[in-house]
């Protein structure tokens, strides 16, 4: 049994290169497919890039909200696993998630959520390889702060814009 892991994230460090999306989709879909990546980088204004992925809330509201029990927690990593045969594409998980992280896959239209690559996330690997260190893998037990990171990326982007651009940052994202 592996130790619990989490992908720590610092959007200010994101270069916007989208290699995380490319490697994730190659890993899960067999080919480059940014919009089927379990991690999605939002860029509501150039320079303001926000990686958006599951934060594994301690109370897993998505699992609780799924009417068909299609979602479950990976006992090893704590990731949310999707049973695609059981998913009815109802969107309850998206609504239950504080950050609207899950989305319907552009191919099979089923709920799609980060599975932490079973313990060694590829997105973290390519991010570190390029020296961006926006995503870092930590071995930490679950804590209350994780859920706070499950946040609408446009809200995060608005904060980041102020951090980077000062007062002007308040104007760049509508």
């Amino acid at each position: 049994m592996s130790k619990p892991i989490w992908i720590a994230r610092d959007p200010a460090m994101c270069s916007g290169c989208r290699r995380c999306e490319l490697i994730c989709s190659m890993e899960h879909e067999g080919w480059m497919w940014p919009d089927a990546s379990r991690i999605r980088v939002f860029m509501p204004f150039p320079g303001i890039e926000v990686p958006h992925l599951c934060a594994q809330c301690m109370d897993y509201p998505c699992i609780a909200g799924c009417p068909t029990k299609a979602l479950s927690k990976d006992p090893n990593t704590g990731a949310v696993l999707v049973d695609r045969a059981k998913c009815i594409s109802c969107g309850a998980c998206i609504r239950a998630c504080p950050g609207s992280v899950p989305y319907m896959h552009p191919g099979d239209n089923k709920a799609t959520i980060c599975d932490l690559c079973g313990g060694s996330p590829k997105c973290v690997e390519v991010c570190a390889e390029a020296g961006y260190n926006c995503l870092t893998l930590v071995n930490e037990p679950p804590n209350v702060h994780r859920k706070i990171y499950s946040r609408n990326p446009y809200d995060t982007a608005k904060d980041l814009a102020v951090k980077l651009f000062g007062e002007k940052g308040e104007e760049v994202i509508e």
């Binding site: 270069s15 980077l164 000062g166």
Partner: peptide, 23 residues
């Protein structure tokens, strides 16, 4: 410079940096 590694799609050269004048 407020971002020292800024890249376009599928790029790790990141020759771009983000400049902002704050005052």
């Amino acid at each position: 410079w407020v971002k020292v590694k800024w890249a376009d799609f599928n790029c790790t050269t990141n020759c771009m940096k983000v400049s902002c004048i704050k005052n």
